[in-house]
Amino acid sequence: MFINFESDKPIFLQIAEGLEDAILAGAFAEESQIPSITEFSVSFKINPATALKGITLLVDEGVLYKKRGIGMFVASCAVEKLRRKRKEQFYDNYVSGLVTEAKRLGLTEFEIKAMIERGFKINDRD
């Protein structure tokens, strides 16, 4: 996980997204415990309230849950939930920006589609 302090994106959102990435990558398995608020805030040198806010976001979405007196755990359906959420965000996060930039450069829909096909081919080969 990495926090970019120069980014326009609020730190608590970066914490939440970093945790999501870690869960999707399997670094924090379902039903396993994640580091405490103190560990997050000390290791990234951020205010504990900020770390708490990021983690609360994921608790509200049902990705994490709290065991009283023990700590925070990854929910059993977290990976599935996150995949669904990321798929829903895919258009906003990637496609709309791509189309705007393509128009600015005068790239046609056909050319973009060809590029996407090329991207898939290269990725498959790797």
Partner: peptide, 10 residues
């Protein structure tokens, strides 16, 4: 900053 936050958290 690390010690400050550690102290503040505890």
């Amino acid at each position: 900053y690390k010690l400050l936050i550690e102290k503040f958290s505890n």
